[in-house]
Structures are given as C-alpha cells and as structure tokens.
Computed example of a mutant assay.
Amino acid sequence: MDILISGLLLGGTYALMAMGLNLQYGVARIMNLANGEMLVLGGLAAFWLFTVSALSPILTAVIIAPLAFAGNWLLYRYLLLPLVRRAKTQGQLEVDSILATFGMSFALVGIMVSLHGEYFTYSYLATPFSVLGSTVALNRLVAFGLAVLIGGALYYWLNHTYKGTAVRAVSVSTEAAGLVGINVDKVSALAFALGGAVTAMGGALISTFITLDASVGVIFTMKALIIIIMGGVGDIRGAIIAALILGLVETTVATVVDPGLTLVAAYVIFLGILLFRPQGLFGRRA
C-alpha cells in the first residue's frame, strides 16, 4: 500500500510536466528539449520567493503561470515560428526544433548556474500525513491534489471550449484545421505557451519535495518524453495515465530493488513502447 500511494502521488506531479510537453509537441509540433529547464526555472522561482519572502510555493505557481505563458509565447513567436514556416516537411521541423531547443536548454542552464549555481531545497509542509494507513509527506499530497485540479481544468478546457476544440483540431491535422478557418499559427503559439506555463507550475510544486539544481532539467525532459510517447502524442488523458504508471514503476523499483535503477526502469519502459506500441497506449496507428 505504501508503494501504491507513493507511486500515485509521484505520478500525479509527473503528469503536469508531461502535459506541458504534450501540448507543445502534440499541437505545435515542437519537440521542446528545454522543457525540463522550464520546470527547474519554476522550482527556482518558488525557492527564491519562499526563502526571501516566505511566499507559499502554491501562490508562486499562480504568479509564475502568466509569466511563463508570456515567455513561451515570445519564444514561439520569434524563435520557433520562423522554423515552422521554413520547414517543408514535418520531419524537417522536428529536426530544426530539436536543434533549436537543445541549444536553448544549454542557454537556460547557463543562466540558472549564474543566478544560483548550487542545489536548492527548502522545507514546506514537510509534515507526515496518514493516507489509508500509509504515511506520506503533506507537501506531496498537496502537490498531487493541485496537479489533479490543473489537469482536470486543462482537460475540460480542451474538450468543452471553442479554443480547446481548435487546439485539438490542430493536433489532429494542421492542414484540415486551416481549411475550416482555424488560424494554425495562433493556436500553435497558444498551445506552446500554455504548455510552458503548465510545466513551470509543475516545477514550483515539485520543488516542495525534490531537491533541484540547474543541470537536472534533462532528466525531467526525458521522463516527460517517455510519458507522452507511452500515453500517445497529443492525448492529455493518455499522458495522465502514463505518468501514474511511471510513478508507480519508479517507486516500486526504488523500494524493492535499488533507487539508482529508477532511470533504468524508465528507459526500459520507453524502449518497450517504441518497439511494441509506438503509437502509445491511447494513440492510433497512422
């Protein structure tokens, strides 16, 4: 029961960072390798505001969301949109976006090292709390609850609003979406910016119970990539379920085998999905 509860709590917070990358890759067609650095930036902001001003990381997540949205919109508009318009094929766009965001990730790491070159951690709601007979840290429970709330709001927006329907239409086919009058560039910019905001909020929440540093973003990018491929590119529901599965697997391996093998377990899942079900759990074959 301890493994089940801990795994679900970890998977719930993983879902936030995966939903962000899913919007960026599944809708805007940008494989953002700087996604993990955006998460670490959100965590660093929460750390600073908590240690300097005793501001709750939950409130920080609310504050940084519009800032991250604006920053990611500018990145898409002035750095990535020219690549989208230049690319003659989807394959060329993926290669160009990988190279561009790979360089961006190094730039963000350099900025964060210059601002705060050490590990950063703080104590927030680090008190034991009993759930179904298992004891967990309250900060993990709060982060999971907020992740569920944000994920539910995003799912509702995508499925029950005009803008959300436009985003889903673009994720299915940019050509068909354009033919029915949807401004594909604007919707893609919206999805990319919203994905960055969700990821930054996830970083603020994750920082309450995980020690972060500037160089750890690549690990979160890899895990987010595993989750969206496992769940199906562009499928928010699939990303949430895949994140819970990854959280359960990592917790089980760390508890039963060895904590150092959690990344190995994640890679094995990734390899298995690529080999046997490349469209993901909820994706459809092309």
Rank of each mutant, 00 (worst) to 15 (best):
T252H: 04
A243P: 11
I269N: 05
E175N: 12
G260C: 08
T262K: 15
N159A: 06
R237G: 15
L190R: 00
I240Q: 02
V148P: 10
L244H: 04
T252C: 11
S207Y: 06
G145Y: 07
V180W: 04
G247I: 07
G232I: 10
I206K: 01
F192A: 08
G202D: 08
F144I: 11
F144Q: 09
A265P: 14
A243Y: 06
A197Q: 08
I241R: 00
S171F: 03
I240F: 15
V172D: 14
A176C: 04
A266N: 09
T199P: 11
G217E: 09
A239C: 11
E250W: 06
I245H: 01
G247C: 08
A193N: 09
K163F: 07
F144N: 04
A266W: 03
F144P: 13
L158A: 07
A169T: 12
A224N: 09
G231K: 01
V218Y: 08
S207K: 04
L149F: 14
E250Y: 07
F220S: 04
V257W: 15
G217K: 03
A197N: 09
L212E: 12
G260S: 13
A176S: 14
A169Q: 06
E250V: 11
L149K: 02
E175C: 01
T161L: 07
I269S: 08
F270I: 09
L271V: 15
G234Q: 08
D235R: 10
M230I: 04
I182T: 10
L149P: 10
V249Q: 08
A204H: 06
I228S: 04
T211W: 00
S171R: 05
A265E: 12
T211K: 05
L263N: 14
D185E: 14
G260Q: 13
Y155N: 00
V264I: 15
I226S: 13
T221Q: 06
L146F: 13
D235P: 03
A191H: 05
T262P: 09
G234K: 03
H160T: 12
S173M: 07
D258F: 04
I210C: 02
F192H: 06
K163S: 12
G164T: 09
V257A: 13
I269F: 05
L246S: 05
I150P: 05
I236F: 07
L244G: 08
A191R: 01
G181E: 11
G234S: 11
V167D: 00
I206N: 10
I229T: 14
I227L: 03
D213R: 08
S173N: 10
G203D: 10
Y156H: 08
G272K: 02
L248P: 06
W157P: 00
V216C: 13
S215D: 12
V257H: 04
L246W: 03
T252V: 12
I210D: 11
V167C: 01
T199K: 03
L194D: 03
T208S: 15
P259A: 09
S173D: 13
L246G: 05
S215G: 12
K223I: 13
K163V: 15
A204T: 10
V148R: 01
I240A: 12
S188A: 14
V256I: 15
G260E: 11
L261A: 09
I226N: 02
A193F: 09
V172L: 12
A189W: 02
F209E: 09
Y155S: 00
V198Q: 02
L225T: 15
Y267L: 15
T252S: 15
V198T: 10
S207G: 11
